[in-house]
Design a protein around this nucleic acid. Structure first.
Lengths: 233, 233
DNA sequence: ATCATTATTATGTATATACATATTATGTCA
DNA sequence: TGACATAATATGTATATACATAATAATGAT
């Protein structure tokens, strides 16, 4: 059983997950210490530790020094969504991707934008609007403001062959981001762009990205109401 | 610097994250091997390994045996949303939580529900509808179907003091789930329950949970359009 | 009794070593 | 040249040991 012993931390993790799922270890209960489990599973404490830590990171266990490890009372599970490039998202679904540049130029950003980015008063920013299409049908309307101080080299990009989304992903990293999802109604501009009627429902994703101390971009991505964001866990 | 050396794996991880964020290590580039990095950081290979593995799990690095470790080409970063119990969600925001049971009884589930759960034809399920309020204002309308075969003990629960959401979280684990987010318009029923006008936008979360081989529950959670789902990364 | 100090303890991390495994690079033979 | 076996290599995992750290429990002083 050397082979089995050699991948024991996965096996141990799985076994412990099973005990939690099947209530052998009830929610809130204190589970045995690492040393005890190490003896039970016939392995080193470090191996048990790794399994426990991964489960704790997954939220099903709560660990506290000296207090011990207990099964999470409310397994506040978390869903993970990949934040793909729109093109990939569309192509993964089997659609043919295209995008249209609607406008591209430096403008004075309204206060609602600069405020969200933590920039004080209205200032000149690069404003790019474009439409992403899947099989010639409007898929996402992207309305983006870019902080030229953070990414000066973007100023002269034409976005004729690459979308601003993709340009930023490949040219500008970020260290922090905030993402907001909500529902809304299509305004005149959005309805027109997305071939919807006014007051049709739309699914809105707003994303703010930052480098330490420097806001980079604020983008509103608007999908028709038929859009579904799906995840498994 | 013993203290620093003692928590070096965090420091090493942070330093490597910085190098990736600041393009010292460019996207797609092969980074030095574990041994080399261990020498550079003045620590054991295991320590570097842990830092690298965590970064790889976070998606910013891609590791392959023998081939080495490289910076992810498309840092397809993923957003993580906690899926809290509504009560916690409201209380965390500082609101006073209440809920109202709207209906609770066994009914023949429509085919759209049974189909989504992978149950063949319409069958009797427990149908529970309730409204969650924050500071006396409608916050979420929960419309839930529960598979009695999976959780027979729920049949006689009255849900007078505990919401079905919380009951299921504390009484029935799940191993798999699918979550769908989308935007829609309030129907008559929803508008009435949530104190909205018909055709106001609503934010809809649908969740299906399963045990291996057994669907447990299908729930539609409907929020007023003003609802924001926020995450940082 | 109350508060501050100290001991205890479970988890957290680091290290050296050893071996496993997957994948690439290399060499051999037909 | 091309197919196939073999060596080389970077990562993956396990282990014993040691010490760090945080939180609790026990202890002592006022």
């Amino acid at each position: 059983m050397t082979a089995a012993a050699r991948k024991s931390f996965h096996a141990i993790k799985a076994e412990m997950a099973r005990r939690i799922a099947e209530r052998v270890w009830a929610p809130g209960a204190l589970i045995p210490g690492e040393e005890v489990l190490a003896v039970e599973f016939g392995c080193a404490r470090a191996t048990v530790n790794r399994a426990l830590q991964e489960l704790a990171r997954g939220g099903v266990l709560v660990r506290k020094r000296k207090a011990g490890t207990r099964v999470a009372l409310h397994p506040m599970r978390e869903a993970r969504f990949v934040i793909p490039i729109v093109r990939q998202e569309i192509e993964n679904k089997g659609g043919v991707y295209q995008f249209r540049l609607l406008s591209n130029g430096v403008e004075k950003a309204p206060e609602c934008v600069t405020k969200r980015l933590g920039l004080g008063k209205p200032k000149d920013m690069l404003h790019v609007r474009c439409l992403h299409l899947s099989d010639d049908k409007p898929y996402q309307y992207e309305d983006r403001w870019i902080n030229l101080d953070a990414v000066p080299s973007i100023r002269h990009e034409t976005f004729e062959t690459i979308s601003p989304n993709e340009w930023l992903v490949t040219h500008s990293p970020f260290s922090q981001a905030e993402i907001v999802f909500h529902a809304g109604l299509a305004g005149a501009d959005e309805a027109d762009t997305l071939s919807l009627d006014e007051n049709d429902p739309v699914f809105i994703i707003e994303r703010l990205t930052y480098l330490p101390q420097k806001p980079i971009t604020f983008v509103r991505m608007i999908h028709p109401g038929s859009h579904r964001m799906v995840t498994q866990l």
